[in-house]
Design a protein around this nucleic acid. Sequence first.
DNA 1: TTGGCGTTACGAAGGTCTTCGTATTTACTG
DNA 2: CAGTAAATACGAAGACCTTCGTAACGCCAA
Lengths: 131, 131
Amino acid sequence: MRQKKKSEFLTEVELEFMTELWALGEGTVRDVLTRLAPERDLAYTSAATILRIMEQKNFVTSQKQGKTLLYRPVLAKDAYQAKTLRDLSEKLFDGTPASMVARLVDDQGMSEDALAEIRALLDRRLTDNDS
Amino acid sequence: MRQKKKSEFLTEVELEFMTELWALGEGTVRDVLTRLAPERDLAYTSAATILRIMEQKNFVTSQKQGKTLLYRPVLAKDAYQAKTLRDLSEKLFDGTPASMVARLVDDQGMSEDALAEIRALLDRRLTDNDS
DNA sequence: TTGGCGTTACGAAGGTCTTCGTATTTACTG
DNA sequence: CAGTAAATACGAAGACCTTCGTAACGCCAA
């Protein structure tokens, strides 16, 4: 029985759950469910199933805490963000991250401050590498 | 019969096809199929099905050219890129596009050249706004 | 120990995605 | 007009995703 399709990325719902786990650091089914918007109205067993599947896919690990399972993200949010951007850059931006930034800067309502902040970050990164 | 789930984004394979259509401007099933990597080895009828579905979803339009259909993207690549970034920013970057750029810049896999290019882009944008 | 309640495990239904085979249509050629 | 080659339309299979209901499990209180 093959390990199916190496699933590298979170599905829509999995991302929804992982977002809460990242915010919490760790959490039970109940913890995550509680944090979802009230209008989400997902059955408890559905949430449990989603987390169990996420563990099968190695997106989270679990550990028994009394009678309940405590889930933890395997990958930090930072790392997953970077991974996702790399993938998107490759698939939709011809593998040139600069074109991604270009599109962001052109089309998003990014504030002057945000832009300046990013440039400062770049300067720091570039001089660091020069050393 | 409801209009199902309003599908805003391309699936994996649809993006693969749309990428070729964007590069071509327009094209037939044969045109797109020819441009795919040889090892892709997709049946002609599969390609035709994918484009037909993409038309149902309003990602492309078609027009008869002799006996064959000529497909055209509905959305320009720029516009789709922007749309995708907006969605990603919202779902994975707390709705702050600047944090997206920050993550890109932090990523160790990014080349010196790419970083310099991004800074040039930002500089241009900032001086433009100063005027 | 036993009942009860919250949790976990499992299976199934309904939907989408990807791929292909078969059948039909179309335009051209003799 | 009939035949051929290419294109289109359609249906179906198999995979995955999302959701839930039912069953089994585990802990604690009376």
